[in-house]
Design a protein around this nucleic acid. Structure first.
Lengths: 206, 206
DNA sequence: AGCAAATCAATACACCTGTACGGTAATGTA
DNA sequence: TACATTACCGTACAGGTGTATTGATTTGCT
C-alpha cells in the first residue's frame, strides 16, 4: 500500500477532508452553477479557511477534477450495489439504473444539475472530459452486460445488438433527464417513455 | 409596426449590429465556453470597442438572452425551411431535423456546444431557462406534427401516441448528441441508433 | 523529548470583471 | 440650418478572482 491509503497516522484524515471540501463544492455547483463558485465560497461552505482549501487542492482545476471523480464514484457505487443486490430481474435493475438519469427527486435533481454543469465544462476542459468520458464508458458497459444477461435469460430476444440497445437506452434516458431538468416535460412522463422503450426491448417475439 | 422594425432611418442598422455582436459572442462560447467570455473578449471578437457593445446591450445578461434567441431562431428557421421544402417524405424530414441534434459536422458541433453551454447556464438563470424551454416546446410540436402526418399517410401505424413518440425521439436524439459531443461514441453510430429507432416507428404492422 | 511533516490561517498581489460615466462625432429630421 | 437622437470611444471604478507566500500551530512518529 502507498502512503495515500493509510487509515491511521499522519495524513489519515487527508482524503476525508478533501471529500468534505468537495461536497461543499458540489453543493454550491448545484445551487449556483459551476462557474459561479469561487474558492472562497467553497471554503465558507465547508466552514474552513481559504488557506485550508488551498492546502488540500493545489489549484481550482484539481479540486474540480477531484469533485467530478468523487461524484462519479458515488454513481458507480450505487450501480455496483444495485448489481450485487440479488432478487431483482435484469429489467428491474436496468430500469433502476436508467431512472437515476431522470431527476425524479431532489437527490437525482441535484446530481444531474451537477452532471450537466460538468458536461458543459468538459467541452472546454479536456482533462475533465477524459474523466467524464470514463464514467460514461463504465456505465455503458454495465448496460451492455445487463442486456446480455436478459438475453441469456430469454427476457430479451437475441435479435438486437446489446451494444446498440445499450447506447439507445443510455442516450434516451440522458435526453429525457436533460429535458426534465430544464422543465421540458415531467419526470413521470419521462419515466413512462422510458418504460415504453423497455417494453419494446423486453417484448420477446412470440 | 413599431419603431424597432424600421428598415430605414435612425436605428435602422441597430438589430443588424446586435446580431453581429451576438455572432462574435456565440463563436467565443463555442471556443472557450460561456463563462470564459468577457464583454471585452466579445468586443475584440466583433472588432468593436467595449463601449459599442455596451451601447447595444445594457448588460451581459441581456446580451446572453439575445444570443440565445438569435441561435434559437436560426434553428427554427432551418426547421421551417425543411418543412416547407416539398418533395420529401415525413420520415426524411423527421430524420433531417433530428440529425441536427447530432454533431455530425463542424456547424452542428459548434451549435450543439453552444446549446450545451446555454443549457447549463439555464439551470441557474430562470430567464434564460424560459427562452430555452420555449425553443424545446416549439421543436416538440413540430415533431408531433410530423408524426401525425406520417400516421395520416399510413407510414406510421395509428398505434403510438404522437406526443409520446415525439418526446422519445427528441430525447433520444438529444442524448445521442450529448454523448457524441463529449466523445462517447461516434456520430455514425449515433445516427445508426437513431435510424434504428425510426425503423421501429415507421414499421407498419403487416 | 525532539523533530519533521501536516494543517491550517492571514495576508498580499496582480489581474480581470461588469458597469458607469462623460465626452465627441455622425446621422437623420424638421 | 438647428436640433435630437444614435453611435460610439476612452477611461475609471469598485469589487472579486486564483494563487503565492509567510508564519504559527498541531500532530504523530522515533
Amino acid at each position: 500500500m502507498g502512503k495515500d491509503s493509510r487509515t491511521r497516522g499522519l495524513g489519515a484524515r487527508h482524503e476525508e477532508r478533501r471529500r468534505q471540501i468537495a461536497e461543499a463544492l458540489l453543493a454550491m455547483i448545484d445551487l449556483h452553477g459551476l462557474d459561479a463558485v469561487s474558492l472562497r465560497d467553497v471554503a465558507a461552505g465547508a466552514e474552513v479557511s481559504l488557506g485550508a482549501v488551498q492546502h488540500y487542492f493545489r489549484s481550482k482545476d484539481e479540486m474540480l477534477l477531484f469533485a467530478l471523480d468523487y461524484i462519479s464514484e458515488q454513481g458507480t457505487d450505487r450501480v455496483r450495489r444495485s448489481l450485487s443486490l440479488g432478487g431483482q430481474s435484469p429489467r428491474a435493475v436496468l430500469r433502476g439504473i436508467l431512472a437515476e438519469l431522470v431527476p425524479g427527486d431532489d437527490r437525482r435533481r441535484a446530481e444531474l444539475r451537477i452532471a450537466t454543469a460538468f458536461t458543459a465544462r468538459s467541452l472546454v476542459n479536456p482533462k475533465l472530459a477524459d474523466h467524464l468520458r470514463a464514467g460514461y464508458a463504465a456505465l455503458h458497459e454495465v448496460l451492455v452486460l445487463l442486456i446480455r444477461q436478459a438475453q441469456d435469460a430469454g427476457e430479451v430476444s437475441a435479435g438486437p445488438d446489446p451494444e446498440r440497445a445499450a447506447a439507445a437506452l443510455f442516450a434516451l434516458a440522458e435526453g429525457l433527464g436533460t429535458h426534465v431538468l430544464i422543465g421540458h416535460g415531467s419526470p413521470e412522463t419521462a419515466l413512462a417513455v422510458l418504460d415504453e422503450h423497455l417494453d419494446r426491448l423486453f417484448a420477446t417475439a412470440p
